[in-house]
Structure formats: structure tokens, C-alpha cells
């Protein structure tokens, strides 16, 4: 998806995290799209947002989903609730799976996963 002119992935490439924002509804939108899903108005504004949130849920994938994930299996998929009010799927890294708890605070880092630079999360305490 990188280099497609999609501001989301262009920002990720520069290790920044940005999301579309609806100035009318004053809400962030995820996944990125052209119209606000609430009021259906556009354009949405792209804003850089802090990659902070908490673990809404997680699962350790023990059987690789696709061959390109073989080398990192098992890995932890996590549903992250960002402080700006949206949820996104990501990985939880740098944390043994037995230490993960629901609602644990996390912060975004950028890692290469299966050949693509992606926003992922690590435990956010003790920074």
C-alpha cells in the first residue's frame, strides 16, 4: 500500500501516524476513507495523532496465517483502542504474551512485518 499517495501509508513510511478527521463531527475516522461515516460530508482533514491507546483485546496466533508470517509465528494480534477514539487491528510487540492484559496502555512503534512497514504497539508504561 505504500507509495500509493494514500496519506495514511505515506505517513507510516515516515514513521508518523495520521488519521482522517471530520471537522464537523469533531471525530477521527478509521479506516481512512473519503467521507465522514457519521455525516457523509467531505473533505476530511488529515491530522497527525499520538499513537497511544490501550489493548481492547488480543490473541496469540499460533498457526501462521500466511507463509510470509511463518518466521514471526507465534505473534500477537491486538485490537487497540486509540486514545483519539477509534479501534484498529495491529500487533503487540516487545511483550511476552503472558504479560498482556486487557486495557493495558500501549504506544505505537513502527516495525517491518512480512515485508511491510506497519504501525504496531508495545507496552506503554515505564517509557
Amino acid at each position: 500500500m505504500q507509495g500509493t499517495g494514500n496519506p495514511y501509508w505515506d505517513c507510516v513510511e515516515g514513521e508518523e501516524f495520521c488519521l482522517p478527521y471530520c471537522p464537523l463531527c469533531q471525530k477521527f475516522v478509521f479506516y481512512p476513507r473519503k467521507l465522514c461515516p457519521n455525516c457523509f460530508k467531505s473533505p476530511l482533514e488529515w491530522k497527525v495523532v499520538p499513537g497511544r491507546g490501550k489493548v481492547y483485546s488480543y490473541t496469540q496466533v499460533r498457526v501462521s496465517a500466511l507463509p510470509e508470517f511463518d518466521s514471526i509465528t507465534p505473534y500477537v494480534l491486538a485490537l487497540i483502542e486509540l486514545d483519539v477514539g477509534v479501534k484498529m487491528l495491529s500487533h503487540l510487540v516487545d511483550c511476552p504474551s503472558e504479560k498482556i492484559t486487557i486495557n493495558m496502555p500501549v504506544e505505537m512503534v513502527f516495525r517491518e512485518i512480512a515485508g511491510q512497514k506497519l504501525p504496531v504497539f508495545r507496552p506503554g508504561e515505564g517509557l
Binding site: M1, Y31, A65, Y75, L77, L89, H91, I113
Partner: peptide, 13 residues
């Protein structure tokens, strides 16, 4: 675009 890059295991995950 936004989930498959993370290797979700379809409905299982």
C-alpha cells in the same frame, strides 16, 4: 488494506 498486512487468521482470530 488495513487488516491483512497484520496476518489475521480470518474468522479464527
Amino acid at each position: 488494506d488495513y487488516e491483512l498486512p497484520y496476518g489475521p487468521m480470518g474468522f479464527n482470530s
